[in-house]
């Protein structure tokens, strides 16, 4: 097991090099001189020249990239923000916990509501409840996140005044952003749970469990759910990773001071080191989550666990 984890961690290295190269070259190709962004459009030539030499902007592209990688690996330094002049890594570490909290609350909401509804829908297939759940799930998949956010603000903040429409510091402020971010995932998890359960319920070992007189609740919640869980875990894991990216929209709707907002602000003020650092950071997290999901499989499924021995 340990060797497997190590192997997977090593396999991350080329991917991260690839992503960093891709993002780095993307930003290097961007029109506009960083010197002008930092010093202003009417900065004088001499100042620009000094800035360019200081930042090593006149070096060839590959040299700049190599220096970036070296600093990132050796010192954890991924550049400084053009706007605040603080290290990007420090800025990200400051705001990232907020994004993780938002994404976790969203996944939690989606799992706690989605899995039970998916199961009931599957057990009572073709019932009214099943149809209603599936229609709602279809609506949930099709509604853009930001529209849900705007509508929630309209009803719960503007009209009812129950929850604040921005911020993320109190529990009541966390509710609307979490629900907004959860909505699509909730719908996806509900649909996935239903189809996964439907498949399992028809299998022979469920019939066996029923035939031996097992209580129906045990059959569903233990025998069936235990086996239906693998695809569900995959979806939850993938969704969690995507929520880190999707949080960008939610955070900018609700003014949540997270990584997404940091990046949107970075994009607007052309603060490219921040954007670059943010994308890299999320890619790293995304990869680690995928690894975690694979390890979770082994935990849930003894058949897979055997293979890692």
């Amino acid at each position: 097991m340990f060797r497997y984890i190590l192997k997977r961690l090593l396999a991350l290295i080329p991917v991260l090099i690839g992503v960093s190269f891709f993002i780095f070259s993307l930003l290097a190709l961007t029109p506009g001189d960083p010197a002008n962004i930092v010093l202003g459009a009417d900065a004088d030539e001499a100042a620009i020249k000094i800035f360019r030499t200081e930042q090593g902007l006149d070096d060839p592209f590959l040299v700049r990239y190599a220096r970036f990688v070296y600093r990132a690996v050796a010192h954890g330094d991924i550049g400084r923000s053009y706007a605040t002049h603080r290290p990007v890594a420090a800025e990200i570490v400051t705001v990232f916990p907020t994004t993780v909290k938002l994404a976790s609350l969203a996944v939690l909401t989606a799992v706690v509501i989605g899995i039970p509804f998916g199961i009931i829908s599957a057990v009572k297939q073709y019932s009214v409840l099943d149809s209603v759940t599936m229609i709602l799930a279809m609506v949930g998949v099709s509604m853009p996140n930001f529209w849900i956010g705007v509508l929630l603000i309209l009803f719960f903040s503007v009209h009812l005044g129950w929850f604040p429409s921005s911020g993320f510091d109190t529990l009541s402020a966390m509710i609307l952003p979490s629900v907004t971010l959860a909505s699509n995932t909730l719908a996806i998890i509900t649909r996935m749970t239903r189809s996964s359960m439907l498949e399992v319920i028809k299998s022979d070992y469920i019939r066996t469990a029923r035939a031996k007189g097992q209580r129906e609740s045990v059959v569903i919640w233990k025998h069936a759910l235990g086996n239906a869980l693998i695809p569900i875990i995959t979806v939850v894991g993938i969704q969690f990773g995507h929520l880190l990216g999707g949080a960008i929209l939610t955070e900018s709707i609700f003014s949540v001071p997270g990584l997404g907002r940091l990046m949107v602000d970075g994009i607007k003020s052309r603060d490219y080191p921040v954007v670059q650092g943010g994308v890299l950071y999320i890619a790293l997290m995304f990869a680690l989550i995928n690894l975690l999901v694979d390890l979770l499989y082994a935990w849930v499924d003894p058949r897979i666990r055997m293979r890692y021995r």
Partner: peptide, 24 residues
């Protein structure tokens, strides 16, 4: 497929946002 793996390793919406931010 390695190049595709690299593109997949960034959440899709974020990748679009990053590229659109650069392209304008």
């Amino acid at each position: 497929m390695r190049v595709m793996d690299i593109l997949i390793s960034v959440p899709r919406i974020l990748l679009s946002i990053a590229i659109a931010a650069v392209l304008g």
